[in-house]
Design a protein around this nucleic acid. Sequence first.
DNA 1: CGTAGTCGATTACACGCGTAAACGAAGGAG
DNA 2: CTCCTTCGTTTACGCGTGTAATCGACTACG
Lengths: 128, 128
Amino acid sequence: MAHSNSQPERISDAEHAVMEVLWTKSPLTASEVCERVCGERDWSLATVKTLLSRLVAKNALATKPDGKRFLYSPAIARSDYVGTESRRLVDRLFGGRAAPLFAHLAQSESLTNQDIAEIEALLQELKQ
Amino acid sequence: MAHSNSQPERISDAEHAVMEVLWTKSPLTASEVCERVCGERDWSLATVKTLLSRLVAKNALATKPDGKRFLYSPAIARSDYVGTESRRLVDRLFGGRAAPLFAHLAQSESLTNQDIAEIEALLQELKQ
DNA sequence: CGTAGTCGATTACACGCGTAAACGAAGGAG
DNA sequence: CTCCTTCGTTTACGCGTGTAATCGACTACG
């Protein structure tokens, strides 16, 4: 067996859009997934089917047969995905440290007042 | 002319490694760039030359002739690159808001005490 | 002056991705 | 039972990327 282990194969951009749909609601059929993204990304059902198959091959989705069709559900947690992607960026661009990333966001005024307030609150919690 | 405008064409992962070298020190010749990355990434000089050419084609590097060879220098600022890449991630994964990213880093214990201290200091400045 | 080394430019090639059409099996309608 | 629809699977194809080898020009050494 070639891919039975769950080595996290990289999820591409288009695939990620499909994952987001299923993280929001699952299980769903291919058509239902399409209903929720095909408009937004201007895709055909065929494209969604391809992406679903690739995600299954990557062990990112699980399938349950339902009659002749499949119900798709995430096989990896969104927080895991988000975590590895965030860390990848922080490693590549900021030497693995989060503070420089934060500094950069601050400098480029990408932080809203709300962001600042929330981060401050989180910091308080962390310090306890 | 096809590519005279500086529409920021995407810089790939391997290309980014080359950019980092030139952001650290420039201008450099192809061989000098190789000296600084070929070991680390296990590349041949030919690979570096390809990447340099592609970066020039993407208007990410500028060249000055020096005899028969070129001296390469960055044509885009590292902070710009880092900015767009960071924003891209925050948009894709956190709906464009920085606070959830921070929350995630905090939760996954990716924040060192030093990070926390520095971020706190930055927050103080921001609040003034 | 000729020849070996060194440049950038050109060409190569496999693989992943975005995007989809074609195909074959199965189930529902009549 | 037969045909249309609907699935998942297979195949397609162009582009970017990672990774290089080759080529033609130029230079420096002898």
